[in-house]
Simulated assay, not measured.
Amino acid sequence: MLPAPVSTIAPSTATGRPIRWGVVATGSIAARVVQDLALLDDAVLHAVSSRSEASARAFALRFGFTTSYWDAAGAAGYDRLLADPAVDVVYIATPHTQHHAVALAALHAGKNVLCEKPITMDAEQASELADLARERGLFLMEAVWTRFLPSFRRALQIVRSGEIGTVRWLQADLCFTAPVDPASRLWDPAAGGGALLDLAVYPLTWALGALGEPGAVAARGTLTPEGVDLQNALTLTYDDGAHAQLTTSIGAESPSVVTISGTEGWLRSSTPLFNPGELVVQPRRGTLRTERFEVFGSGFVYELREVTRCLQAGLTESPFMTTAESVRMMEVLDEARRQIGLRYPSDADLAAGVPA
């Protein structure tokens, strides 16, 4: 994983021609991301789609979109949005289980795509999207916003500088107690619920950034009566003997921090690890220090700037969040699911897995 470059220029500052955005879905994550999208000087909020006319119109009015689409006359709202020639790039904020179908339709329609995490439900689907984007010369990126935050970029810079020596161990947790609600997507197998697909991408992002791809994955988890995972623990092992221990849960509270331990010191994030405002660094032969970071907007603006920059430069993927990395992350999650017995109605055959 390459760390995104550090810039002294505000991420809202235009980097080229205006980019016209279409947004699929009007839920809470879409609203949070679009709030930051509106901060970009070269972003045009062109179109939004929803299943319902009321939601589409309300969202468009709230954020100032030019037009809105909804399910009508046998056509899905997103199909109507994808047929709009004015849309340059589509941001997909649907539930997990819809990511693959909507992204596939967008790429077939000739649209560039930014898709919420996890990019798909499994690695096979992710590979299909990556191959199609490559064949059609279109941009595709998974919306792992943490990768582009100043604090995460700085953490990788410290790791790569050698200040804390060779990384031998990493621990990361992301846990919270979610009210049990069978109607909520977190508890619904049909919506890809559970802790793993919703939360594990963040601890994994830190592990892959600091240590790279693991040689093996071992996973344990607890399933709910509804059939989703309440919590899970992943151990990643590396050929050089390094380890990463990652825990996610929707049934318990935790500090939600990451600790990176090296032969010459350690680094720890503040909470939450997906958007830390501080890093504590303790070199073995130095003084403990705290580095603090100001975040522009809510923090999504950094990944949105990267998408915009790539489109303006004619790139089909970000060098700092490649489709190959998204596929590999899904392979790790597939293997974890196989080991803990977590299956969804939408699953293809996960029996083969990857070496454990």
Rank of each mutant, 00 (worst) to 15 (best):
I29P: 02
I29Q: 07
A30V: 14
A31P: 06
A31L: 03
V33N: 08
V33H: 09
V34P: 04
D36G: 06
L37A: 12
L39E: 10
L39C: 03
L39D: 13
L40D: 01
V44H: 07
V44Q: 12
L45I: 02
H46V: 09
H46Y: 15
A47C: 02
A47P: 04
V48A: 09
V48D: 01
V48L: 08
V48G: 06
S49Y: 01
S49N: 07
S50D: 04
R51I: 15
S52Q: 05
S52V: 07
S52G: 06
S55Y: 11
S55T: 15
R57D: 07
A58R: 11
A58K: 14
A58Y: 06
F59P: 00
F59R: 00
A60I: 00
R62A: 11
F63L: 12
G64A: 12
T66E: 13
T66P: 03
T66F: 06
T66N: 10
S68M: 13
S68W: 11
Y69W: 05
A72Y: 09
A73S: 14
A73K: 10
A75H: 09
A76F: 14
Y78F: 12
L81C: 08
L81S: 01
L82Q: 07
P85Y: 11
P85H: 15
A86S: 13
V87P: 00
V87K: 03
D88C: 04
D88M: 12
V89Q: 05
V89E: 00
V89K: 05
Y91N: 05
Y91Q: 12
I92D: 02
A93P: 08
P95A: 11
P95D: 10
H96D: 09
T97Y: 08
T97K: 14
T97H: 09
T97N: 11
T97A: 14
Q98V: 14
H99A: 05
H99W: 08
H99Y: 13
A103N: 06
A103E: 01
L104T: 11
H108S: 13
A109K: 10
A109P: 10
G110M: 07
K111A: 00
K111M: 05
N112W: 02
V113I: 05
L114I: 13
L114F: 10
E116F: 02
K117I: 02
P118Q: 07
P118F: 08
I119E: 02
M121H: 06
M121K: 06
M121F: 09
D122N: 14
E124G: 15
A126D: 00
S127F: 11
S127W: 15
S127I: 07
S127H: 14
E128Y: 15
A130P: 00
A130M: 02
L132N: 11
A133L: 00
R134T: 06
E135Q: 14
E135Y: 11
E135K: 12
E135G: 03
G137H: 05
L138P: 04
L138E: 08
L138Y: 03
F139R: 03
F139Y: 14
L140Y: 06
L140Q: 05
A143E: 05
A143Q: 08
V144C: 04
V144I: 15
R147L: 09
R147T: 01
F148S: 12
F148K: 00
L149K: 08
L149C: 03
P150H: 03
P150Y: 01
P150I: 05
S151W: 07
F152I: 15
F152W: 15
R153Y: 14
R154E: 12
A155K: 04
L156E: 01
I158L: 14
I158P: 07
I158V: 15
V159I: 13
V159P: 03
R160Q: 06
R160M: 11
